[in-house]
């Protein structure tokens, strides 16, 4: 099943499927690229940033950005 990164639930894991054009360069430095495993660690209330784990590293990412990343999740 595909969903936006921003829609992932706490502790949900998936594989990055698609990153909106023009964004790839911006977030590649954080280790987020297509084909990478990604896990939702924490979500802040009131549209606060989400913390995701990629490559053993926790990175916080704004929800606006997270809206533009499509993740393939299990189930």
């Amino acid at each position: 099943m595909e969903k936006k990164l921003s829609e992932m639930k706490y502790e949900e894991e998936g594989i990055v499927k698609e990153i909106r054009e023009g964004l790839k360069d911006k977030i590649a430095g954080m280790g987020i690229r297509e084909g990478r495993g990604i896990k939702m660690m924490t979500k802040q209330p009131i549209k606060g940033p989400a913390v995701v784990a990629v490559d053993r590293a926790n990175t916080s990412i704004g929800l606006g950005l997270a809206d533009k990343i499509i993740v393939e999740v299990g189930k």
Binding site: G29, G31, D55, R56
Partner: peptide, 8 residues
């Protein structure tokens, strides 16, 4: 422990 990210 996060080599790939750093290499970027």
């Amino acid at each position: 422990s996060k080599v790939e990210r750093g290499l970027y």
